[in-house]
């Protein structure tokens, strides 16, 4: 049973870390919004799905790559990848702001209870996924290969593949930048202030609507970046992929302590590795079971997740 783990330990670890970083970025979308609004942004999974389409549309329709065209090289490669990343972040960011406007802002202004926004968020997520279903005729969409998956070398028997390495480093960098933004910038301070005490922050002259929109935007940008990495590694999307990813990322956020940015980081990585190890040792059919047993155990002993709650605890 453990032969696979011993034999393939480093391959699995690298794959798990890459998957974990994708989870980290998507769970930021959940954690940021939760930290500020104390509401779960159920539409984040569909924001992710729209991001993956942003990536594919960029390479396929803007740069004209097809399934049979040769992968890009040199400066062209950097240009295509960077535009894919930025466009998919932009698509997801705009979608996130749209979600905030449609599903949250008006209801918040009317002072409705939290359950109303929960339902409206679920509603908008259905709209987003059904819209994509109609646009794509329910079909899966393959991504042209832009980045040749060169094997850079071998470490302890595991292949270091270019796409996984890029995913790990670039995702870590994006996480780091976002964390710095929330910690150090003026807007970041305002976000943390609102998450600590909304009324007090308002009295101090914080523009609440702007803070909330920015929070959605930042969460959306992180989620969009995740969409780009996901496509670069897996080269496949469909209108319904958001659900599984959203479930995993939400679990990661809760594991780490929802509302806590650092919690999303450790939760995502932990979940990525746990999934990969559990599938390899017990069989993939036990993946979800293992994940949720671990989640229940963690919440049993640490009800607020591994790192506790709230954006405000991420202080400098």
């Amino acid at each position: 049973m453990f032969a696979v783990l011993i034999d393939q330990f480093w391959s699995l670890t690298i794959a798990g870390i890459a998957l974990g970083f994708i989870y980290v970025l998507v769970s930021l979308g959940y954690t940021m919004v939760y930290g500020v609004l104390r509401m779960i942004n159920f539409a984040n999974s569909e924001i992710f799905m729209w991001g993956t389409f942003g990536t594919i549309v960029t390479s396929r329709d803007i740069f004209g790559y097809t399934q049979t065209s040769a992968p890009a090289t040199g400066p062209k490669l950097a240009l295509v990848l960077l535009s894919q990343l930025l466009i998919s972040m932009a698509v997801a960011g705009v979608t996130a702001i749209f979600v905030e406007y449609v599903a949250y802002r008006r209801l918040r202004a009317k002072g409705t209870n939290r359950l109303a926004t929960l339902i409206s968020a679920i509603g908008i997520s259905i709209v987003l996924s059904e819209l994509m279903r109609l646009l794509t005729d329910s079909r899966p969409v393959g991504s042209p290969r832009v980045l040749e998956k060169i094997i850079l070398g071998e470490v302890w028997g595991a292949n270091l593949r270019l796409d996984t390495i890029i995913t790990i480093f670039a995702a870590a960098l994006i996480y780091f930048l976002l964390e710095r933004f929330v910690k150090l910038s003026r807007m970041g301070k305002a976000i943390r202030a609102v998450s600590m005490n909304e009324d007090a922050a308002k009295l101090m002259g914080v523009n609440l609507n702007r803070v909330i929109t920015t929070t959605f935007l930042v969460g959306g940008l992180a989620t969009g970046a995740a969409g780009f990495f996901y496509i670069t590694v897996f080269e496949y999307t469909k209108f319904n992929i958001g659900f599984t990813m959203g479930m995993a990322a939400f679990t990661a956020a809760v594991l780490g302590g929802i509302g806590n940015i650092r919690g999303a980081f450790y939760g995502g990585l932990f979940l990525g590795l746990l999934e990969v190890y559990a599938s390899a040792v017990l069989g993939t059919q036990w993946k979800a079971v293992t994940v949720f047993i671990v989640l229940v155990l963690v919440l049993l002993f640490k009800p607020n997740g591994l790192f506790g709650e709230a954006v405000q605890t991420t202080r400098a």
Partner: peptide, 17 residues
Amino acid sequence: TDSVPNTTTDFSPTIAK
């Protein structure tokens, strides 16, 4: 053998096996 949910996109554990 393995049994992989049809929502899977990351097949690395199966490939390791």
